[in-house]
Design a protein around this nucleic acid. Structure first.
Lengths: 120, 120
DNA sequence: GATACCAGTTACAAAAAGGATACCATGGCA
DNA sequence: TGCCATGGTATCCTTTTTGTAACTGGTATC
């Protein structure tokens, strides 16, 4: 993750547009968890443990994924001064630009599930 | 890959829709290469070596990814009886259902690239 | 015969991802 | 004082994914 094959020099000839832009997206939001976490956070902010439980993801991985999402400006981390300190994770406005991707994947997953159930 | 967390029994209460459907999609089309390959094949059918060169993917991985895509009904494999045997890979009609996902990811990658270039 | 291209496969290595457990610090409660 | 909960981190280990290099087998070309 975080490698960027963004070619600023712009020799677009050997840099087929479609392939590269999709790889750029995957660099930021690819992998097993990032889109799932964003999709969960679309229901509203959550705390660390809540996310861990809802996504069924171990603290270690969750911590790493959230840091990466934060670095890419998709998620904010807020420490609340409650009695046992709690931390809230929420989506940034910028993450809204991913709506189309998430909605498309959500729709496809739904229709695909229906398809493979009716034709076993 | 190929694990399915599709819960046919349908206890949807502990099966939050958005999360699961996105994971279903990732099971089929997740990973580093599948969407890239599909995106390349949208320009038209390609042979094995062509794909290998265009995606800069090694034969071993390419072979595996194509098999998985074929198993999921997204790609067809056709052996042509040319002199050195060639094999053509093409998208199936069903793969068109992924258009929205691919186009959305393509658009996002493009705009994200522009964003991070202008704000370094 | 030597070379090269086709479509892969095999064996092996490296890296990434994932999981389990223990641990830290803070503070509330009994 | 001991025990719980919070949000993590550290350590160790296993599994999965990805990559490299070499190789097969067939055909065509030089």
């Amino acid at each position: 993750m975080a490698k960027q094959h963004i070619c600023i020099t712009g020799n677009a000839d050997h840099c087929p547009k479609a392939r590269m832009t999709i790889q750029d997206t995957l660099d930021v939001v690819g992998g097993k968890w990032k889109l799932v976490l964003i999709s969960i956070l679309r229901d509203g902010k959550k705390r660390f443990r809540e996310l861990s439980r809802e996504a069924e993801i171990s603290p270690r991985i969750l911590s790493k994924e959230l840091q990466e999402l934060e670095m890419n400006g998709l998620v904010t981390r807020t420490v609340c001064n409650t009695r046992p300190v709690t931390v809230e994770y929420a989506l940034t406005p910028y993450s809204d630009t991913l709506s189309e991707v998430i909605i498309a994947m959500h729709k496809w997953g739904k229709q695909h599930r229906e398809k493979i159930i009716e034709t076993p």
